[in-house]
Amino acid sequence: MALIAAALALSPAIAHAAEVGFLNTLGGDWGGDGSVRIRTTMPSMPVKCRFSSTATESSMSLAGQCTSLAIFSRPLSATVKTNGKLYTGTYLGSKTGPATLRGTRSGNALNLEIRWARNVNGDRSAQLRIEKIGGDRMRLTTIDTNPQTGKIVITSQIDLRRL
Protein backbone atom coordinates (compact mmCIF):
# COMPACT_ATOMS: atom_id res chain seq x y z
CA MET A 1 0.00 0.00 0.00
CA ALA A 2 2.85 2.39 0.82
CA LEU A 3 4.38 1.75 -2.61
CA ILE A 4 1.13 2.63 -4.36
CA ALA A 5 0.82 5.86 -2.35
CA ALA A 6 4.43 6.77 -3.13
CA ALA A 7 3.89 6.08 -6.85
CA LEU A 8 0.76 8.24 -6.91
CA ALA A 9 2.57 11.04 -5.11
CA LEU A 10 5.38 10.97 -7.67
CA SER A 11 3.17 10.81 -10.78
CA PRO A 12 2.77 14.63 -11.15
CA ALA A 13 6.54 15.05 -10.91
CA ILE A 14 7.08 12.33 -13.51
CA ALA A 15 4.49 13.92 -15.82
CA HIS A 16 6.16 17.33 -15.44
CA ALA A 17 9.56 15.76 -16.19
CA ALA A 18 8.13 14.27 -19.40
CA GLU A 19 6.86 17.71 -20.42
CA VAL A 20 10.30 19.20 -19.74
CA GLY A 21 11.91 16.57 -21.93
CA PHE A 22 9.42 17.25 -24.72
CA LEU A 23 9.89 21.03 -24.72
CA ASN A 24 13.69 20.66 -24.78
CA THR A 25 13.48 18.67 -28.03
CA LEU A 26 11.94 21.70 -29.77
CA GLY A 27 14.99 23.94 -29.30
CA GLY A 28 17.31 24.81 -32.20
CA ASP A 29 17.28 26.23 -35.70
CA TRP A 30 14.68 24.94 -38.16
CA GLY A 31 14.01 25.39 -41.87
CA GLY A 32 11.55 24.00 -44.36
CA ASP A 33 8.59 24.62 -46.57
CA GLY A 34 4.85 24.24 -46.71
CA SER A 35 1.71 26.10 -47.67
CA VAL A 36 -0.26 29.06 -46.31
CA ARG A 37 -3.75 30.41 -47.01
CA ILE A 38 -4.26 34.06 -46.10
CA ARG A 39 -8.01 33.36 -45.77
CA THR A 40 -9.95 30.08 -45.66
CA THR A 41 -11.65 31.05 -48.92
CA MET A 42 -8.37 31.64 -50.79
CA PRO A 43 -6.10 29.09 -52.47
CA SER A 44 -2.94 28.09 -50.63
CA MET A 45 0.47 29.37 -51.69
CA PRO A 46 3.83 27.65 -51.21
CA VAL A 47 6.17 29.11 -48.56
CA LYS A 48 9.74 28.66 -47.39
CA CYS A 49 10.37 29.24 -43.70
CA ARG A 50 13.19 29.54 -41.17
CA PHE A 51 12.77 29.54 -37.40
CA SER A 52 14.93 29.68 -34.34
CA SER A 53 13.64 28.11 -31.14
CA THR A 54 14.81 28.23 -27.54
CA ALA A 55 13.46 25.89 -24.90
CA THR A 56 13.76 25.74 -21.11
CA GLU A 57 12.32 23.35 -18.57
CA SER A 58 8.90 24.99 -18.73
CA SER A 59 8.80 27.13 -21.87
CA MET A 60 9.53 27.29 -25.57
CA SER A 61 9.89 30.27 -27.86
CA LEU A 62 9.83 29.95 -31.65
CA ALA A 63 10.44 32.91 -33.98
CA GLY A 64 11.07 33.20 -37.69
CA GLN A 65 9.72 34.15 -41.08
CA CYS A 66 7.88 32.55 -44.00
CA THR A 67 8.13 33.84 -47.56
CA SER A 68 6.23 33.02 -50.75
CA LEU A 69 7.96 34.47 -53.81
CA ALA A 70 7.40 38.24 -53.73
CA ILE A 71 3.73 37.88 -52.79
CA PHE A 72 3.93 37.11 -49.10
CA SER A 73 6.50 37.54 -46.35
CA ARG A 74 5.53 37.51 -42.71
CA PRO A 75 7.24 37.09 -39.37
CA LEU A 76 5.75 34.31 -37.24
CA SER A 77 6.33 33.53 -33.59
CA ALA A 78 4.95 31.49 -30.72
CA THR A 79 5.83 31.38 -27.05
CA VAL A 80 4.46 28.60 -24.89
CA LYS A 81 4.74 27.89 -21.15
CA THR A 82 3.59 24.83 -19.26
CA ASN A 83 2.78 24.05 -15.66
CA GLY A 84 3.07 20.33 -16.41
CA LYS A 85 -0.48 19.90 -17.71
CA LEU A 86 -1.72 23.09 -19.37
CA TYR A 87 0.12 25.04 -22.08
CA THR A 88 -0.47 28.77 -22.49
CA GLY A 89 1.20 31.44 -24.57
CA THR A 90 1.10 33.88 -27.44
CA TYR A 91 1.07 33.42 -31.21
CA LEU A 92 1.86 36.09 -33.77
CA GLY A 93 1.03 35.08 -37.33
CA SER A 94 -1.93 37.20 -38.32
CA LYS A 95 -1.99 40.94 -38.97
CA THR A 96 -4.64 41.24 -36.23
CA GLY A 97 -1.92 41.25 -33.58
CA PRO A 98 -0.87 38.82 -30.85
CA ALA A 99 -3.25 35.91 -30.23
CA THR A 100 -3.49 33.89 -27.04
CA LEU A 101 -2.76 30.15 -26.97
CA ARG A 102 -4.16 27.56 -24.56
CA GLY A 103 -4.10 23.79 -24.79
CA THR A 104 -2.55 20.47 -23.91
CA ARG A 105 -0.03 17.96 -25.16
CA SER A 106 -1.07 14.67 -26.72
CA GLY A 107 1.85 12.36 -27.50
CA ASN A 108 4.36 14.32 -29.58
CA ALA A 109 2.08 17.27 -30.32
CA LEU A 110 0.89 20.43 -28.62
CA ASN A 111 -2.77 21.07 -29.51
CA LEU A 112 -3.45 24.72 -28.86
CA GLU A 113 -6.57 26.82 -29.22
CA ILE A 114 -5.84 30.21 -30.82
CA ARG A 115 -7.84 33.23 -29.70
CA TRP A 116 -7.18 36.01 -32.23
CA ALA A 117 -7.04 39.67 -31.18
CA ARG A 118 -9.75 40.45 -33.79
CA ASN A 119 -11.91 38.44 -36.16
CA VAL A 120 -10.07 36.22 -38.65
CA ASN A 121 -12.16 34.17 -41.09
CA GLY A 122 -15.38 35.28 -39.42
CA ASP A 123 -14.50 34.59 -35.78
CA ARG A 124 -11.71 34.80 -33.22
CA SER A 125 -10.81 31.12 -32.84
CA ALA A 126 -8.58 28.62 -34.66
CA GLN A 127 -6.18 25.83 -33.73
CA LEU A 128 -2.39 25.55 -33.78
CA ARG A 129 -0.69 22.16 -33.69
CA ILE A 130 3.06 21.97 -32.99
CA GLU A 131 4.09 18.39 -33.73
CA LYS A 132 7.50 16.79 -33.18
CA ILE A 133 8.18 14.15 -35.85
CA GLY A 134 11.18 12.01 -35.03
CA GLY A 135 14.44 13.54 -33.81
CA ASP A 136 14.95 16.21 -36.44
CA ARG A 137 11.53 17.20 -37.84
CA MET A 138 8.66 19.38 -36.69
CA ARG A 139 5.32 20.31 -38.28
CA LEU A 140 3.38 23.52 -37.60
CA THR A 141 -0.29 23.43 -38.62
CA THR A 142 -3.01 26.03 -38.22
CA ILE A 143 -6.63 25.04 -38.73
CA ASP A 144 -9.68 27.27 -39.06
CA THR A 145 -13.30 27.06 -40.20
CA ASN A 146 -14.48 28.48 -43.52
CA PRO A 147 -17.28 30.90 -42.51
CA GLN A 148 -19.15 30.36 -45.79
CA THR A 149 -19.20 26.55 -45.79
CA GLY A 150 -18.57 25.61 -42.15
CA LYS A 151 -15.85 23.21 -43.31
CA ILE A 152 -12.55 22.84 -41.46
CA VAL A 153 -9.62 24.20 -43.49
CA ILE A 154 -5.88 23.80 -42.95
CA THR A 155 -4.74 27.41 -43.28
CA SER A 156 -1.05 26.61 -42.95
CA GLN A 157 1.10 23.52 -42.78
CA ILE A 158 4.84 23.93 -42.53
CA ASP A 159 7.22 20.95 -42.40
CA LEU A 160 10.53 21.82 -40.78
CA ARG A 161 13.88 20.06 -40.42
CA ARG A 162 16.53 20.84 -37.85
CA LEU A 163 19.35 22.83 -39.46
Score class of each variant (00 low, 15 high):
residue 159 D to M: 09
residue 47 V to A: 00
residue 104 T to E: 12
residue 65 Q to N: 14
residue 78 A to E: 02
residue 147 P to T: 07
residue 24 N to R: 12
residue 60 M to A: 15
residue 7 A to Q: 09
residue 65 Q to H: 10
residue 34 G to Y: 00
residue 3 L to C: 09
residue 125 S to D: 10
residue 74 R to T: 09
residue 149 T to K: 01
residue 131 E to Y: 02
residue 131 E to S: 11
residue 2 A to G: 07
residue 3 L to H: 12
residue 90 T to A: 10
residue 161 R to Y: 06
residue 6 A to K: 09
residue 21 G to Y: 06
residue 5 A to S: 13
residue 158 I to Q: 01
residue 159 D to G: 07
residue 160 L to W: 02
residue 105 R to M: 06
residue 127 Q to A: 15
residue 43 P to V: 09
residue 91 Y to T: 08
residue 67 T to V: 15
residue 43 P to C: 09
residue 64 G to H: 04
residue 50 R to H: 14
residue 65 Q to S: 14
residue 66 C to V: 05
residue 8 L to M: 13
residue 107 G to Q: 06
residue 91 Y to V: 10
residue 48 K to Q: 15
residue 79 T to Q: 11
residue 94 S to R: 09
residue 147 P to D: 03
residue 146 N to T: 08
residue 113 E to V: 14
residue 48 K to E: 12
residue 55 A to C: 02
residue 124 R to M: 13
residue 82 T to N: 00
residue 152 I to G: 06
residue 68 S to M: 02
residue 32 G to I: 08
residue 69 L to F: 13
residue 81 K to Y: 07
residue 98 P to A: 15
residue 122 G to H: 04
residue 88 T to V: 15
residue 92 L to W: 07
residue 149 T to I: 05
residue 160 L to Q: 01
residue 86 L to T: 15
residue 37 R to P: 01
residue 10 L to R: 13
residue 87 Y to L: 08
residue 103 G to V: 11
residue 59 S to V: 08
residue 48 K to V: 15
residue 108 N to I: 01
residue 51 F to G: 01
residue 77 S to Q: 08
residue 20 V to P: 01
residue 120 V to Y: 03
residue 63 A to I: 12
residue 98 P to L: 10
residue 112 L to D: 02
residue 55 A to D: 03
residue 54 T to N: 11
residue 128 L to D: 02
residue 77 S to D: 05
residue 49 C to K: 04
residue 122 G to P: 08
residue 118 R to I: 07
residue 60 M to S: 14
residue 141 T to V: 10
residue 23 L to F: 05
residue 96 T to Q: 08
residue 94 S to V: 04
residue 81 K to C: 09
residue 112 L to H: 02
residue 103 G to Q: 06
residue 75 P to D: 07
residue 73 S to A: 14
residue 159 D to L: 11
residue 143 I to H: 02
residue 63 A to E: 09
residue 151 K to T: 10
residue 60 M to R: 10
residue 67 T to Q: 10
residue 89 G to E: 04
residue 47 V to R: 03
residue 128 L to Y: 05
residue 13 A to G: 14
residue 134 G to R: 02
residue 32 G to H: 06
residue 141 T to I: 08
residue 114 I to M: 05
residue 121 N to K: 05
residue 3 L to W: 07
residue 6 A to P: 03
residue 135 G to D: 15
residue 39 R to Y: 14
residue 41 T to D: 11
residue 132 K to A: 15
residue 73 S to F: 04
residue 127 Q to E: 13
residue 46 P to G: 08
residue 11 S to W: 09
residue 111 N to W: 03
residue 123 D to F: 07
residue 126 A to K: 04
residue 12 P to M: 03
residue 27 G to K: 11
residue 114 I to N: 01
residue 149 T to P: 00
residue 49 C to G: 08
residue 21 G to H: 04
residue 111 N to H: 11
residue 131 E to F: 06
residue 156 S to E: 13
residue 47 V to E: 00
residue 59 S to I: 07
residue 39 R to S: 12
residue 91 Y to A: 05
residue 103 G to H: 03
residue 48 K to N: 11
residue 130 I to R: 03
residue 133 I to K: 13
residue 156 S to W: 03
residue 61 S to N: 12
residue 16 H to M: 12
residue 109 A to G: 07
residue 15 A to V: 09
residue 10 L to K: 12
residue 24 N to P: 04
residue 58 S to N: 15
residue 162 R to G: 00
residue 70 A to L: 14
residue 100 T to M: 09
residue 14 I to C: 03
residue 146 N to F: 00
residue 138 M to A: 12
residue 134 G to V: 05
residue 59 S to R: 08
residue 137 R to W: 04
residue 84 G to T: 05
residue 72 F to S: 04
residue 153 V to Q: 00
residue 82 T to W: 00
residue 69 L to C: 07
